[in-house]
Write a protein that binds this DNA or RNA. Structure first.
Lengths: 157, 157
DNA sequence: GGCAAATCGGACTCAATCGGTCCGGTACTA
DNA sequence: TAGTACCGGACCGATTGAGTCCGATTTGCC
């Protein structure tokens, strides 16, 4: 349980990578894949999904690539992961009603929905700031700003 | 993400069912499977797993079956689920070190371990009482005792 | 204008996992 | 002693997931 798909992991890595660059830097799929050690074709699919979700902005053509649509502090963990997780819920009752064809209603639904709601509440507040400065999280709460480190590669758009 | 395996669902249903009986009632696999609408052979495997985990006590032979090893309030959610979830963790770094063969260490490990620890802390305190009286949970916290309802079938051992 | 760089998006394969079944063996009780 | 019920391994089919391939389209640059 809990495990996210590999695509979600790649998505988190990509957002983390882009967040560490200056805001208007653009990175191509090939570059990002090489630096993070991710299969390029697969990463391409992931970034497309993130773009559709409104988290990334793509520039096509030569010199193009991806950049963050907004700062990491305004991107929620669930937003990054949701495009690649078909069902976000503890038990099959919630996501696929057809699975639970018990006449009187599944006896797990009520307690599980309580649990689900509790977990979601936790995740709602969690932004990608955790992935930039993990050690200060939980104690200080979500930080408002991050000093952008311009270490990795990238081109200014 | 979050989703537990079908076996885990069956395990939760079984514990829930047994918890609603009086403590010394014994229910056979066939009876429990029929009442909960679970494939008997599969439920048999699940109950074996729960017994190995020390949550159930089995009596073999005629008139035998399963009963809880201790009251529901002393059974944690993670105990019920763990035998059927090979990996309990958000990202593959934690459970299978071999998966993450990045030289400099996966950049997700640190933030994810923070997240993992946080989630585990929440689950540690959660007992199966939630599945007996879900609505009072979270507001009142884990209850200490439950009035056992002797509605379902079962034999006194 | 033409070429190269780069995103787009569908189709496809391969392997692993999961849900479920089957069956022989063993222990216990009436 | 016979029937009941747990024990446990082998097996199978469907689904899902990771990853690949390839063509189409858009855009920047010489």
């Amino acid at each position: 349980m809990f495990k996210v798909s590999r695509k979600s992991e790649y998505a988190l890595m990509a957002i983390q990578h882009l967040a560490r660059l200056e805001p208007d830097f653009v990175v191509s799929v090939a570059d990002l894949a090489a630096q993070e050690g991710i299969p390029p074709d697969l990463l391409a699919k992931v970034l497309q999904g993130l773009k559709k979700a409104g988290l990334l902005i793509a520039s096509k053509g030569a010199g193009g690539g991806y950049r963050l649509a907004r700062p990491a502090g305004e991107i929620r963990f669930l937003e990054v992961v949701r495009p690649f997780e078909e069902q976000i819920g503890v038990v099959s009752c919630h996501t696929r009603v057809t699975d639970c064809q018990r006449t009187d209603g599944c006896s797990l639904r009520d307690p599980m929905s309580v649990l689900n709601a509790y977990l979601m509440r936790q995740f709602e507040q969690m932004t990608m700031e955790l992935f930039i400065s993990p050690h200060t999280w939980l104690t200080t709460g979500p930080r408002t700003t991050t000093p952008a480190e311009s270490t990795s590669l990238g081109r200014r758009s």
